[in-house]
Design a protein around this nucleic acid. Sequence first.
DNA 1: ATGTATTATGTAATCGATTACACGAAAGTA
DNA 2: TACTTTCGTGTAATCGATTACATAATACAT
Lengths: 342, 342
Amino acid sequence: MSEKITIYDIAKKLNITAATVSRALNNNPKIKESTRELVIKTAASMNYKQNKLALALKSGRSNNIGVIVPRIDSNFFASVIRGIEEELHPHGYQVIICQTHESPKRENENLYTLIDAQVDGIMMSVTDVTDENDGAFHYVLEKNVPLIFFDRSKHIDGVSSVTVNDFKGGYVATKHLINEGCREIAHFSGDQSLEIFKNRFLGYKQALLDNGLTFKEEYVIRTKSSVEAGKEAIDVLLALDTPPDALFSASDFAALGAIQELKERNISIPNEFCVAGFSNEPFTKFMELSITSVDQSPLEMGKMSARVFLEQVDKTDTIKIEKKVVLAPELHIRKSSSRTNF
Amino acid sequence: MSEKITIYDIAKKLNITAATVSRALNNNPKIKESTRELVIKTAASMNYKQNKLALALKSGRSNNIGVIVPRIDSNFFASVIRGIEEELHPHGYQVIICQTHESPKRENENLYTLIDAQVDGIMMSVTDVTDENDGAFHYVLEKNVPLIFFDRSKHIDGVSSVTVNDFKGGYVATKHLINEGCREIAHFSGDQSLEIFKNRFLGYKQALLDNGLTFKEEYVIRTKSSVEAGKEAIDVLLALDTPPDALFSASDFAALGAIQELKERNISIPNEFCVAGFSNEPFTKFMELSITSVDQSPLEMGKMSARVFLEQVDKTDTIKIEKKVVLAPELHIRKSSSRTNF
DNA sequence: ATGTATTATGTAATCGATTACACGAAAGTA
DNA sequence: TACTTTCGTGTAATCGATTACATAATACAT
């Protein structure tokens, strides 16, 4: 075990006080240049390392920020985290990861844990939006810890968010399907208590109406974000009297499930049926029958969240800044919906 | 801003000392039962929260562990991290993420940063294995911080590791290709200074020799783990006098690149050419022409790493335990190499 | 020479919790 | 009764760094 060197050890060696050492190391202008140099040289030679915990205790700032996501092993969330990490690392922040597994209970626990661990900020994608009376968020706000929502947001006064324009995403995807000649367009939605799914749905609906198509309730199916769920949902749709000729799915995984099932039934894609997904998961691009999907630029979302955090930290004295950043979605048109180009 | 309640506040209210409060909250047996109950009740009513930073400073333990990976937005690493987080969360540890982007310099920085942040342990997948004289690792060991390598390991005395049997993975994948009737099997390798790639290669070679096939140097190509690299590499192979009839790629991405290029050339898979990859990335399963791949059970790898950490922490007094856990790889046979079943 | 800035450093409190040691009170023993 | 344990709590140091305030030392002005 290497001995821990503290500023007291340096002070003793140089016959000065720890205060002087501290000031010298922190470039306090009141320190004589010669002293500063001596201290810095001695510190280096003794292999001194600042104890971050002591600093954190004194300053109340841990230089850690917490990130809460439903799960980390999804390309979207992992990419957002990557963005956050890359933006914050140069500023000396470490990123602490928490997963909720879509459980509001875990979400609360994580919030409390992070605050208790004295993180300097929290960035998160909420899991459930229903418990408005929930104490954990107020606990965060009371502590004046910057809180930033990304992707899945919640309306709380004074809280910033970075989201993608889901309405537009749903709109352009649906419009694209219409342009390809589809007239009976179905939609796989997620839990509409989450804004993102609500908005993707609304974008879809608006695109239909704006283009003279009728919106049919029975074409909208709520599915989980999984291949299996997509298969089951498309079965339901194909059993309708007028089955659809296209699908806009709010999940790439469900879109994939639908595609697999359609192939099983020898329905030709994109000739007889067009499909568009959402999220631009890596596999959508890799498939032989590549899948059209709406990109949410997760890396950018992460970086932007980090920037919003940096703006807010250190400004706790001023009026709380509420910044709503909305990124533009980008439709990646691929084979699953291209009757013309490929 | 909510006032911060400390044990001193509780002490003052009850006309006792902070020491008694601390002992009561920590279930110290020397405290009178009635006092303990009173303290606990008062603490709850005052909404007291233990200051983790103060605790960390005093105890020298932060309850954070650091994880260093090349990048987080890869399904493999994200899954390992998920495993680590799930195993460690119940024990009160938070997971701090660092990325190296395959840069040894960043790797060193991350190691120093984590130690300076007083993490209680470090789990990592190394980036580069060449600089044996590297100070950062010794710094970690000097501090007696448990260090565990997963997947990409480095030989350091007293350091535990959790890896998959890459030799076996390479062997079974190659053996499988041979069983399917392939005779001229090529191999995409990664940087062989990394054990994992070395061992996958050796397994491949051994399988060839054990089955009476000749090993050809020119069939082994070093590629990056990307689709593009795979395309370029297969071009080289197909230009040989005797082009191969199968490929075992140490990377799923490179395997995918090869498949795309082979299709481009109208070479039929698996009839004329079989392909197997490594890592079992999600997309390998999703493709219409699903790709055979070796699974490394990343979730299990993460959990196992966490367990090894838990065994080592708190036992710094004893002789250093060096535990080498080797998980069994599992070959997932899919269409890209199945001439018979599908 | 005396008084006043200015500069560099020391003193000591502080962040919040833990804990070795000390000590008074109660209980047990002879 | 007197003496020893045992029990419960208080005192104060400690973890390592920062910083308001005090003070010593020097420079400068009159």
